[in-house]
């Protein structure tokens, strides 16, 4: 059963890595607007001017 300790340790490390990834992306502002970027990427960029206006 000693292997359980090792498994526990590794699973914790993986979980902590994901938590860190979430916290980092959150503080980076990736969840500020979860809908806008999806629409924006579908739009053609005709000129740099029009994309800054809207």
């Amino acid at each position: 059963m000693g292997i359980i300790y090792l498994l526990l340790f590794f699973s914790l490390i993986i979980a902590a890595a994901f938590l860190w990834a979430f916290l980092w992306s959150n503080s980076d502002g990736q969840f500020d607007d979860v809908e806008g970027p999806a629409m924006r990427m579908l739009r053609d960029e005709k000129s740099p001017k029009s994309s800054t206006n809207s």
């Binding site: 914790l12 994901f18 938590l19 916290l23 959150n26 503080s27 969840f31 500020d32």
Partner: peptide, 25 residues
């Protein structure tokens, strides 16, 4: 307000992480 929203999200993330692992163990 943006800052506050991010803080709330972080808290929720940590609480979810803690809950998942606490329940698991």
């Amino acid at each position: 307000a943006k800052e506050r929203k991010r803080q709330d999200f972080s808290k929720l993330g940590i609480a979810g992480f803690a809950m998942g692992n606490a329940m698991m163990s």
